[in-house]
Simulated assay, not measured.
Amino acid sequence: MVLPSPSAPLPAVGPLGERFADVRRIAVLRGGGLGDLLFAVPAVEALAHAYPGAEITLLGSPMHAALLTGRPGPVHDVEVLPVAPGIREARGQEEDPAATEEFVRRMRERRFDLAVQVHGGGRNSNPFLLRLGARHTVGTRTPDAVPLERSLPYVYYQHEMLRALEVVGLAGAPAVALEPRLAVTDEERDRARRHVGGGDRLVVVHPGATDPRRRWPAERFGDVAAAVAADGAQVLVVGDATDVESADVVVARAQAALPPAARGRVASLADRLDLGELAGLLSLADVVVANDSGPRHLARAVGAPTVGIFWFGNAVNAGPLGRSQDRMQMSWTSHCPECGIDCTQVGWTAPRCEHDPSFVAGVEVAPVLEDVRDLLGTAAHEAVA
């Protein structure tokens, strides 16, 4: 049996279409959050490999622009999407039709040869993509979405990275990587190092998640933080402005369980880091402990070992693929703890109850701590009760 060389493309996910001719400009539509962007990175790498020399433009969010602008990688530039239903949501902002029309006009002037939709089921994104006037289009679609030149069915329960790879396979782009990779600059690491010190290893904790149902109780993150700080590690809690309160709970819980001499090993950096500095810090971490969230996916992309707490449905769509450097503890909650509605029926048409209890509260501290210590090489320690 002849094995492929390390530089050879991996097989495509799904059927591999013929490559389009004379593709010099590619647009990739992927709005949403940090994790949404990172799920699309392997697909963008595949496009860059299949169409060498083509300029790839990401149509994304301000966060995506902040992270990728000037960073080495396959994305040449980022165009920030207008606020529009199903395209880009922004709290407190409504669609400005004139701004949307201006965006479409500018994108048509760029004369994209290929436009790729990896932005959901296509009800809103496919009509939007078609307005850009690209010579060729590929993407996903639900039965009621308008078709693109080449489409594949959108079925909710599919890993997002593999879904995106299947989409670009329609354009003749086989995979070259199955998980996202993101370059971190020396300057970002240097800025992050200012916060590091006071322990023999670094554990980074992120207790937040956009969806409250994906949040493990902050007190349990605090118990994990206390245990690894007692082992001698430094623990830094990260997050944005919405995570400050949870981060403070983590720190207070951990410090209350530690002797005075060890309390300084646990601190919060929530709402104090920009995205580049966060990437630098995560790249320095020995382990990152987090919910299913953008920072956990960013940690994986910059090479940090991770321990993630996942609702089992999200594990299908967003869980890590490997286990040597990534561990996952899952909650098997299938019905809302408050009203009993079936929470496995998800997607565009599924009912969503008004309740936001944690769907991952059933995950205990002990297995999470065991995973953290195993990755740190300290599995022989006793778990904290």
Rank of each mutant, 00 (worst) to 15 (best):
D248M: 11
G362K: 03
A173D: 04
L67N: 03
T185Q: 11
P85H: 09
Q158H: 13
Q117G: 10
R189M: 06
A262C: 01
L81H: 12
R110W: 10
P42T: 03
R327E: 08
R296K: 12
V266C: 07
H297F: 07
T142Q: 11
C343Y: 02
D96T: 04
P143V: 04
G197T: 01
L236F: 13
V78K: 12
T57D: 13
G86T: 04
A315R: 13
R213A: 03
M107L: 14
N314Y: 13
E109Q: 15
V365N: 09
S7Q: 14
P74I: 05
T57R: 11
G121T: 02
D113T: 05
V23M: 00
V44K: 02
L114K: 02
E370N: 05
A209L: 13
P143W: 13
R24L: 02
L236I: 08
I341H: 14
L162W: 13
I26T: 04
A299I: 02
G31S: 09
D374P: 00
P207R: 06
A301P: 03
V372N: 02
V78A: 12
L16V: 05
P305T: 05
L148C: 05
D22V: 00
A257T: 00
G198C: 09
R30L: 03
L202W: 12
L38N: 00
L29Q: 04
H297G: 02
S7A: 15
V289Y: 09
A171Q: 12
V28S: 03
L376F: 09
G198T: 08
L34E: 08
P4L: 11
P52H: 06
T142A: 14
V146C: 05
V80C: 10
A247Y: 04
S334I: 02
L162G: 01
R296N: 05
A299H: 06
R108D: 03
V238E: 03
Q158E: 13
T57W: 14
G377A: 07
A43S: 09
A183I: 00
A299P: 04
P351R: 11
A171Y: 11
A84E: 15
M330F: 11
A257C: 00
A299R: 09
R265N: 06
G264N: 00
R163K: 14
C343P: 00
D144M: 12
P74G: 06
A256V: 00
A40V: 01
V237F: 10
S5K: 11
L148S: 02
H119K: 01
E45D: 15
E382N: 00
A192M: 10
R220H: 14
D356H: 14
Q117S: 15
V289T: 04
W216P: 13
R265G: 10
H335L: 01
L273W: 09
C353F: 13
D200K: 15
V287A: 04
D223E: 15
V41S: 06
D190N: 09
V251W: 14
V224P: 08
A379G: 15
L278A: 12
L29K: 05
P6E: 06
S358H: 05
L258R: 07
L114R: 01
R105L: 10
A177L: 12
L129K: 06
R110N: 04
R25A: 14
Q117P: 00
E79F: 14
V235Y: 12
A247D: 06
V146L: 15
P85F: 12
T344H: 14
P212E: 08
R111D: 03
